[in-house]
Design a protein around this nucleic acid. Structure first.
Lengths: 347, 347
DNA sequence: GTGAAAGCGCTAACAT
DNA sequence: ATGTTAGCGCTTTCAC
C-alpha cells in the first residue's frame, strides 16, 4: 500500500492511474488504454511492464471516476415492492446473475409498496447515474413514469405492467394460468369458487387474475363472483372471511382461489386454525408454488411462476435498451406459468 | 429538459451545477453550498433564488461527481451467499431499511457460496468506492479478509463469523439455541437424535450447531453422534439418509435435527415421500422458522432467527465503523433466537 | 456573503 | 506507439 504526501498535505492511501504511469514510465493515457484492452496502441514491452506494475502496486481503477468520465456506470438499479417476498427474492437472483454475466452491478431498493418511496428511489438511482432501471412498480405513479419515458430513461417493468404500455414489461401469463386452474377446478366438481387476494387496487397482476376469475364466473362456473380483500396482517379477519365464504355457500363444494403466495399462506393459516379439512371442507389453490406447497395437507395445487427467468429476461431487455437507445416500441413478454396439481383440488 | 451544444459539439441533456449557477446569477460555489445545506454562507435572497431555479430546471446533483470529489459515496455493499434464501432476503430487507433511514444506498451481490465470486465482488464493490461492506462470507477467504482488515476496509460480517475475529460480527446465538432445542427433545423422550445439515465445511454457524449437537450427545443424550451431510439437490440421497437413520436406531424414538431451513425443507420432502408420520415415526425440528412451519404435519418445531434485526444491527455497526474509522476492537453481537415448540417434537 | 481556481481519478480527441 | 490536454460535475481552499 502506497502512502504519501500530496501537494495539499493530505495523506493518500490509494494507488491511482498517475502512480502507475509514473512507475511504469509512461503516460496515463497508455495506462488507460491498457485498462480498456486497447493493446493495439502499445508495444508488447509496454503491455508487459504495465501489467507487472499494476500487479505489483495492487492497482485497481476507481470506477466512480471511470463512470463520471465515460457517462456509463455499468450499474443497474432494481426497485422492488417487497424484496422479502420469495417471488421477488428469486427474481432478484435472476437479475443479479444475468447482470453479473454481462459485467453489470446491481443496486437494490425496497419500497414496501409505497408509491412515494418508489418515486424517490427512482430519482435517487438516477442521481447515482445507473445505466438503467428494473422496476416492480406500485402501479400508482403512472404520470411520473410517463415523464421517465419521455426522458428516455432505460427502464423495464417486471411482474406489474401499467397502461398504456410505455416500457418493456416482463411478466407471466397469469391471466391464462388463472383460467386454466379455474377450468380444472370446475371440472373437478367444485361448485363455488371464492377469489381471495390482498386488496386489488390498481395492481396489474391482481387485476388480471380477478378479471380471469370473473370471466370464469360468467362462463364455466356460472356463479356470482365472491371476492375477498385479504389483509394479511389481520389473521382474525381472514378467518372470519373464510367462515363467511363457507356459510354463504351451504352444501356446495367450495374452493378458495388465492391470487398470490402471500395470500395463500394467510389463508392456509386461517384454514388450519379453523380446523378445516382440505379438500373435504374446502379446496384451495392459486399462486404461488413455493417450496412447501407439497408438504401442506394433501399437497396444495398451485401456479408456479418462473420468477428467476422473469428476472433474467428483464435484464436482457434492459441491456438491449441501454445499448440501442430507447426508441423502439415497448414490448411485453409473458413467460409461461406452470399449473401444479395436488391433492388440495381433488374431490 | 435542457438540451444544448457544448464546446466539443456533443449534445448535453443533463442540467449541471454550472447551468444552475448561470441561471441563478451566482457561482457554482454558492450552489454547492446550497446543496450541502450551508445556508449561513449566503443571503436569504440567494437561497430563495437558488431554490427556485433548482425547482424550475429540475436540477438533480450528480452523485458520482459528488462522491468522486468528496470520497464518500454513501453506498453500502452487501454480499450474500444466497439471496433467494428467506433468511437472507429478510436480512437484506433489514439492511435496506436501516440504510435508507440513514441516507445510504445498497449495492447487492449474490455469490452462490462461491469463494472466488466472494473475493471478486468485494474488490469490485471497493472499485465502486462503497463506504463499507456487509458480508455473509463463505468462510473460505480468511487470508484475503485479513488483507481487507489490514487495509482498514469498513466491514461487518453477518451470520457467519470467522476466526480470529477481525471484524464486527452480527449473528444469532445459535449454539445456545441448539442446546435448548435438543435439551427439550431429550426431555420429551426421544432416544436418538440425528444431525442433518448441508455439508458443514468451515461454515461458522454449521460448525457451531454441530458442536452444540455433539456436546448434547456427550451429555444429556448419551449417544454417539449420527451426522448426515445433506445434498439438497439430490432428494433421493436424502431419502436414503432418512431410511438409514431410522433403520440404524431400531425401536428407539428418533428425532431429526436440521441445521438450517433449507435442510429442513429437504428433509420434510423426504419424510413426506417416504410416507412417514411426524412425530410417531420420526420427530423433527431445527432451524429455521419459516412461515409455513405451523402448516406442515402437526406443526414443525423450529428455532426462529431474527434475520431482519441481524440486518439492521449490522448496518448500525457498519455506520459506526465508517464514521469512527476502523481502530476499535472488533465486537461480536449475538441476537437471541426463539424456540418455537410445535407438534413435531411432542411424543 | 461570494467567487476563482484547483483537482478528485479517469477517458478521449488530437497531436506527434 | 505514445503523450498532451481538456474535461466529466462536483467540492473546497483561499481570497476578497
Amino acid at each position: 500500500m502506497i502512502e504519501r504526501e500530496k501537494a495539499n498535505g493530505k495523506v493518500r492511501t490509494n494507488v491511482t492511474i498517475a502512480d502507475v504511469a509514473l512507475r511504469a514510465g509512461c503516460s496515463k493515457t497508455t495506462i488507460s488504454r491498457y485498462l480498456n484492452g486497447k493493446f493495439e496502441f502499445m508495444s508488447a514491452e509496454s503491455k508487459e511492464r504495465i501489467a507487472a506494475v499494476i500487479e505489483e502496486m495492487n492497482y485497481r481503477p476507481n470506477n466512480l471516476a471511470r463512470s463520471l468520465k465515460s457517462s456509463r456506470s455499468r450499474l443497474i438499479g432494481v426497485i422492488m415492492a417487497d424484496i422479502s417476498n420469495p417471488f421477488s427474492s428469486i427474481l432478484v437472483k435472476g437479475i443479479g446473475d444475468a447482470c453479473a454475466a454481462a459485467g453489470y452491478h446491481v443496486m437494490i431498493a425496497n419500497m414496501d409498496n409505497d408509491p412515494v418511496r418508489e418515486k424517490e428511489y427512482i430519482l435517487s438511482m438516477l442521481d447515482q447515474q445507473v445505466d438503467g432501471l428494473i422496476l416492480n412498480t406500485t402501479c400508482s405513479n403512472n404520470e411520473f413514469l410517463q415523464e421517465m419515458a419521455d426522458r428516455r430513461v432505460p427502464m423495464v417493468l417486471v411482474d406489474r405492467a401499467i397502461e398504456p404500455a410505455i416500457f418493456d414489461v416482463v411478466k407471466t401469463n397469469d391471466f391464462q394460468a388463472t383460467l386454466d386452474l379455474l377450468q380444472y377446478v370446475a371440472e373437478q366438481g367444485f361448485g363455488k369458487v371464492g377469489f381471495f387476494s390482498q386488496p386489488v387496487g390498481n395492481i396489474g397482476p391482481r387485476l388480471n387474475r380477478r378479471k380471469a376469475y370473473r370471466q370464469m364466473c360468467d362462463g364455466r362456473l356460472k356463479q356470482a363472483p365472491q371476492e375477498y380483500a385479504v389483509e394479511i396482517s389481520q389473521p382474525e379477519a381472514v378467518k372470519e372471511q373464510v367462515r363467511d365464504f363457507l356459510q354463504r355457500n351451504g352444501e356446495e363444494k367450495k374452493f378458495i382461489f388465492t391470487a398470490n403466495g402471500v395470500a395463500m399462506l394467510s389463508l392456509l393459516h386461517a384454514i388450519n386454525e379453523l380446523g378445516l379439512r382440505i379438500p373435504e371442507d374446502v379446496g384451495i389453490g392459486g399462486f404461488d408454488d413455493w417450496s412447501w406447497a407439497s408438504l401442506v395437507g394433501p399437497g396444495i395445487t398451485t401456479i408456479a411462476q418462473p420468477s428467476y427467468d422473469v428476472g433474467a429476461k428483464s435484464v436482457e431487455r434492459l441491456l438491449l435498451r441501454i445499448q440501442r437507445g430507447g426508441k423502439a416500441k415497448p414490448k411485453t413478454f409473458e413467460l409461461p406459468n406452470k399449473l401444479i396439481l395436488r391433492g388440495s383440488s381433488q374431490l
